[in-house]
Design a protein around this nucleic acid. Structure first.
Lengths: 341, 341
DNA sequence: GATTTTTTGATTTACGTACATCAAAATTGG
DNA sequence: CCAATTTTGATGTACGTAAATCAAAAAATC
């Protein structure tokens, strides 16, 4: 049986009220007494029963999710997962609010973050835009003791407590190796379609991709990156154009969103040639393209896992509890047509 | 605010005691009264606060894990994850007991299962041996209202509530496509190393593998399956022998355990040829082999996820609650040397 | 040593549920 | 219609913690 507050009170030779004062850092306890209690807590290995405490406090966890207002499948999916989490709110004692900010706009993100100081949520999850002022705003909030996790896109070098997203450098490297191995000994050019080189996750994917390509597959040359702004129309135009101009393209790596346009371009322009294509994010479109062999592999991050993980971590941090690291590691899913969920 | 028992009592125009009798299916409630209460519950959308209920009951969840006594890295890992779960027992209110049974021995498994009727755990997780008598024993326990999940290896056609493991047919198919694509246009023979064709998960992997090979990669011929009994020594002998006799082996698929022996054989016998190798289960040995290019890809199931998922599902079933399906789907991890955790 | 201040103890209520007891009411059987 | 039985209500205690109140004790100040 795990020890209760009564056990500590008895062990420390103090009253229940004093134990309560120590546990909830209320004033009016002499230093020596506080130490006696803390010793008892340590020796008995007491851990507060969070369920009972939450019941007594009537506690809820007000959480804020800050997302970019991007109109692509992945962000829609992320939003949907947050709505699912909202449906579970009463059971999980959460109270989730989402705030949309203009995409790629550090100033807007910073102003939202600054507004949160007054709102006092017990945790914040944000899709980070990688900029010094954002980093500074996050660090400020962390110093004010707000639990903060970055979602999908990290903010390296900041004080955020946790990152709920995939390792994008590893994702890029993995894409490169898959593409290289699938192409075998063929020689040719590789087109890379990105959203924007201003977003950290895209930059990192490209970095990992280029590194492995250079190290291991020198017969494959990477063409200048096409920046499709995660927009299907732009992506379509850029890819169609690239395919027309370079007859020697034998592989494509799409590391951002807007794959609808990519797929259309491939079907129009590449019927006569054998292209190996790797794309990110499993959506209705990419799934169909994987099945009909337009795409050869899809790398994916599971938005549901990211959202649930962010919530678990924020709650744990708010309670000062440890997280199960292995459980919170967001994995890179690799889908071939055979292991689709 | 979510409704409480008091709210239902008021809404149904009955006392708290009656609500309690209905909720906990205690006797002494007239049929019409019971219906009134149930209507109120439905209309207010009442859901019992599990945390408060468990607090009041002092409830713990006695769970039993039944594992085969196999001496391989995967089972050791699974055991380790269960021990980790035991460490979290007090926080999660679980009380976990593991029982080891001889591997591949349906009779032993059945007798353990039958013993559980008396022990009355609130949930059972087992690594199923695929046999009719096991199926019958599981079905019997399900009918006695024990929540049961199969772990790692499923028992299709039984009444088990849930399967916490990967789709092994999909795993085999994925292995085949990876191997086929990595080998490109090369022609040759493929060696398959399994543990035993008596185990369902191995049979399923082979089935998926053979199907895709036949459909999509006719230039590759599968040699008769080597059954290494998940034993490194046996595996070493079988693979070394096969490599000596068949000069045309260009690929290997190891779908079971005992990869230590496989790796040794590859290093001894295949230094002079280019082999593409796909293996299951990420262990210290397979990880090292992936990094030094002896193995090209590793398919993995995360034992930690399987154990945590089994526990979550068993607890939910014991409480009659729904599970988050997407969260409990055990994914097939594909590791290249670039995305190792 | 008396007074003020700080620290501690004792006790109570609450959270939402479970469970037990006893009395009161309603229903049933004869 | 009375008695026996079933059903319902009222009430209290418990789980482990939070939070508040008020009195008592101890320590610090003059």
């Amino acid at each position: 049986m795990r020890p209760t507050v009564h056990d500590i009170a008895a062990a420390a030779g103090v009253s229940l009220a004093t134990v309560d004062r120590v546990l909830n850092q209320r004033p009016g306890v002499r230093h020596v007494t506080r130490e006696k209690v803390e010793t008892a807590i340590r020796e008995l290995g007491y851990v507060r029963d969070v369920a009972a405490a939450n019941l007594a406090k009537g506690r809820t966890y007000p959480l804020v999710f800050i997302l970019p207002a991007s109109d692509n499948s992945f962000m829609h999916g992320l939003n949907a997962e947050i709505r699912q989490a909202v449906l579970r709110s009463s059971a999980e004692r959460t109270d989730i609010r989402t705030i949309e900010v203009p995409a790629f706009d550090p100033a807007a993100l910073v102003s939202v973050l600054e507004g949160l100081s007054r709102e006092k949520p017990c945790g914040i999850a944000l899709v980070a835009t990688d900029a010094p002022e954002v980093r500074a705003a996050v660090d400020r909030l962390v110093r004010e003791r707000f639990p903060i996790v970055t979602l999908v896109s990290d903010l390296t070098g900041s004080l955020r407590h946790h990152y709920a997203g995939v390792d994008n450098i590893a994702a890029g490297r993995t894409a490169a190796r898959l593409l290289g191995r699938f192409l075998g000994s063929r020689k040719g050019e590789i087109a890379v379609l990105a959203g924007s080189m201003l977003v950290r996750d895209h930059r990192e994917r490209l970095e990992g991709f280029a590194a492995v390509m250079a190290e291991e597959f020198p017969a494959l040359a990477i063409l200048p990156v096409l920046e499709g702004r995660d927009d299907p129309e732009v992506a379509h135009m850029l890819v169609a154009d690239a395919l027309s101009r370079h007859a020697s393209i034998i592989g494509v790596y799409s590391l951002g969103a807007g794959n609808r346009g990519l797929i259309r371009a491939l079907k129009e322009k590449a019927v006569d040639r054998v292209l190996t294509v790797i794309a990110h994010e499993l959506t209705a479109h990419t799934r169909a393209a994987l099945i009909d062999n337009t795409i050869d592999a899809i790398l994916n991050q599971d938005a549901g896992h990211e959202v649930r993980s962010a919530i678990r971590v924020l709650k744990a941090k708010a309670d000062g509890l440890a997280v199960i690291e292995a459980q919170e590691r967001i994995r890179l899913d690799i889908f071939l047509k055979d292991n689709l969920p």
